[in-house]
């Protein structure tokens, strides 16, 4: 069973065909070529595949693509690019919050989701929002510092 799914992806309305049992992660990476979203554990534990669905963070590796129909999706590609990076992306680079980089897209999307709801979060709020994003390199300190720096950059430009 195939279906033409319509949704808003990174601000653009798109339509794409998907099998009934396609996972959102596979639709993004394989069909749409948006490989910023990473496949980590594949079991909804590590958060490398985090995307926003209607403003809420979800693990796309266990999220059926058909469930996302008519939703608004945001992947890391929707945050910014090399020419126009998002303040979060800038802060991650400036603070050295990236080592191997595999968790970074998920971290950025979770942090973005947090800042949409809580523009100037405290350390505990940041930790809580990022608890579902595992990083095996950095020890998290610089990631938390980067989210704080970005929140200041956005709220006091």
């Amino acid at each position: 069973m195939k279906k033409q799914l319509t949704f808003v992806l990174n601000g653009k309305k798109i339509s794409v065909e998907a099998e009934a049992d396609t996972l959102l992660l596979d639709l993004l990476r394989e069909t749409l070529g948006l490989t910023g979203t990473k496949r980590g554990c594949g079991e909804g534990e590590c958060g490398a595949c985090t995307v926003l669905v209607n403003g809420e963070t979800v693990n796309s590796c266990i999220y059926p693509a058909w469930k996302a129909e008519h939703s608004e999706l945001l992947t890391v590609e929707g945050l910014g690019d090399r020419e126009n990076p998002h303040p979060l992306q800038e802060a991650f680079l400036e603070q050295g919050a990236v080592q191997c980089g595999f968790c970074t897209p998920g971290m950025l999307v979770s942090a973005y989701g947090l800042l949409q709801k809580t523009p100037t979060p405290g350390t505990e709020e940041i930790k809580s929002a990022l608890a579902g994003n595992l990083c095996r390199c950095t020890g998290y300190k610089k990631i938390i510092a980067a989210v704080k720096a970005a929140s200041l950059k956005i709220s006091q430009p």
Partner: peptide, 9 residues
């Protein structure tokens, strides 16, 4: 329960 990603869904 779980992480925010899990609690959201």
């Amino acid at each position: 329960v779980g992480s925010l990603q899990i609690r959201n869904v």
